[in-house]
């Protein structure tokens, strides 16, 4: 790897990192997992003047569920940490389903959850999950902290609303209002391939009635797509084949994919509809589940 010349900084506190970002201006880039930044530097698509490596900052590798159910992921939590956190299967089923589908095992060992959100690749799996979960990013800058909803955080392809001197320190998934189910499906030709299409679904139910739903779409537009109307189609009633099909159709309709060597735009829309349908169908509570939950 022969990148252009750059300055390499290793701050040991968040404040120091922000100072370095401030000094470096738009030419400074944060290195967390480096799984996207370093390949881009190798190809010289990116030539940052300063690399601010945050890996030596203690206290950013936490992942915890608060007592109220809020889930927080620090800036240095690797994909593999989420993949191995078996307890997330129940509390964060969308994230648990996506964790083993992110990139490949090598990338997952090093790449970070928050870094993936900041990279804002329309092919990113985590942004779709966070959109489905109504998650947010906590950014810290010279003037303090602010919390930004992921849908607003992602501005477009590879761009976010982060200021050049802001560091995304944490991602937050709000607590569930009901019984949470979720899932993630991705069509890829090979592990680590960019998704032909990916779908994240998260729903919350009170009894059989869906109280909240979110659907995020991967790789079918110039940014992560929040399929709000599709999600709304299943809210306020039990999941039925009709509502599920309608959600699939609406998600396909809001998709804006390109035809390329991974498939035609029509095919990708069809995959979105199919995956939304498959995910929601798998989330229909069985009779036993409904009874159990009612008793509980």
């Amino acid at each position: 790897m022969y990148p252009s010349r750059f300055k390499y900084e290793t701050p040991s506190t968040v404040e120091e990192a922000i100072g370095l970002l401030h000094d470096g201006g738009a030419d400074a880039k944060i290195l967390a997992g480096g799984q996207s930044l370093i390949p881009m530097m190798k190809l010289r698509f990116a030539a940052p003047g300063t690399i601010v490596d945050i890996n030596n900052i203690p206290g950013l590798d936490y992942m915890r569920t608060e007592s109220d159910g809020t889930f927080r992921v620090g800036a240095l939590v690797r994909h593999v940490d989420l993949e191995r956190a078996t307890e997330l299967k129940d509390s964060q089923p969308t994230i648990a389903a996506a964790a083993h589908l992110v990139a490949d095992p090598i990338v997952r060992t090093r790449g970070t959850f928050v870094g993936s959100l900041c990279h804002a690749d329309p092919q990113g799996d985590w942004a779709s999950c966070m959109v489905a979960l109504d998650g947010s990013v906590v950014a810290q800058g010279p003037k303090g902290r602010r919390t930004i909803g992921v849908d607003e955080f992602v501005k477009g392809p590879f761009t976010t609303v982060l200021a050049p001197d802001e560091l995304a320190v944490e991602a937050v998934v709000p607590k569930a209002q009901g019984v949470r189910s979720g899932g993630y499906l991705k069509l890829e030709r090979r592990i680590g391939d960019f998704a032909t299409a990916g779908v994240a679904v998260a729903i919350e139910r009170n009894g059989d009635v869906v109280s909240r739903a979110g659907i995020g779409l991967t790789g079918v537009g110039s940014r992560t797509i929040n399929a709000e109307e599709a999600a709304a189609a299943v809210v306020g009633q039990p999941l039925t084949p009709d509502t599920i099909e309608r959600a699939g159709d609406l998600a396909a309709a809001i998709s804006d994919p390109r035809s390329d060597h991974r498939g035609s735009a029509d095919y990708k829309r069809h995959i979105v509809a199919t995956f939304v349908t498959r995910l929601l169908t798998s989330m229909q509570p069985t009779r036993e589940q409904s009874t159990e939950e009612r008793v509980a």
């Binding site: 069509l187 030709r189 032909t196 991974r262 498939g263 095919y267 069809h270 995959i271």
Partner: peptide, 9 residues
Amino acid sequence: PLLPDRVYE
């Protein structure tokens, strides 16, 4: 290659 989109078509 027999890509999914080709097989689906």
